[in-house]
């Protein structure tokens, strides 16, 4: 079976949901105008998705900045900042909800992978925000990816927290500068 589309689309969801559901939504699904291949769409939880998960934000990026950029794809119905579970401070992700599915798709195409606050941000279609999902799921309250990051990222709290804790412990034990 060959793909009938000649260029990959940027408004396909990432493998996050597909992997979760252990199901494959072909990235190469034929275009709907060909009338075929719609069977997978029936139970696709993202087929009407109006929400996007936005990742790789700086901890310092504000709702207003996000609003300014994301409203270029349509009116924003709701914006939920991702927060550190314990400190209740932004921890580098958010959910943006539009009024229409098309706006969300356009956002994937036109805004995902561009810069906000001088960082390349990531967007992914999302089934919709639910209470509780605004919190980081990492051990120390932030996002998991910020636990073990061994590169210094000033926009996301420096080194990964687990790494940082280890570093500090070493410094205490062996004295700074080792």
């Amino acid at each position: 079976m060959q793909s009938t589309i000649t260029v990959e689309r940027l408004d396909r969801p990432s493998t996050y949901y597909t992997a979760k559901k252990k199901r494959k939504y072909g990235r190469d699904q034929p275009d709907e105008r060909d009338g075929a291949g719609n069977k997978a769409e029936e139970d696709d939880p993202l087929k009407d998705a109006t929400t996007l998960y936005v990742g790789n934000l700086s901890f310092y990026t504000t709702e207003e900045q996000i609003h300014e950029l994301f409203s270029k794809c349509g009116e924003i119905k709701r914006l939920v900042m991702g927060l550190d579970r314990f400190q209740k401070t932004p921890c580098g992700f958010c959910f943006v909800e539009y009024y229409t599915h098309q706006d969300a798709l356009d956002c994937m195409k036109y805004i995902g992978g561009t810069k906000l606050d001088e960082r390349v941000i990531r967007t992914d279609l999302d089934v919709g925000f639910q209470e509780g999902r605004q919190y980081g799921r990492g051990k120390s309250g932030g996002q998991v990816r910020d636990e073990y990051r061994d590169e210094f990222d000033p926009g996301r709290g420096g080194y990964g927290r687990a790494i940082d804790a280890e570093r500090r412990k070493e410094e205490e034990e062996y004295g700074a500068g080792k």
Partner: peptide, 28 residues
């Protein structure tokens, strides 16, 4: 047809904002 529903009555939808946002705001 995908027509954007900008109906002014949509306030009910927008109105559910608080409940969803509540936790974060309260905490702050």
């Amino acid at each position: 047809t995908v027509t954007k529903d900008t109906k002014m009555e949509e306030v009910q939808v927008a109105g559910s904002l608080d409940g969803q946002n509540g936790t974060a705001v309260d905490a702050d």
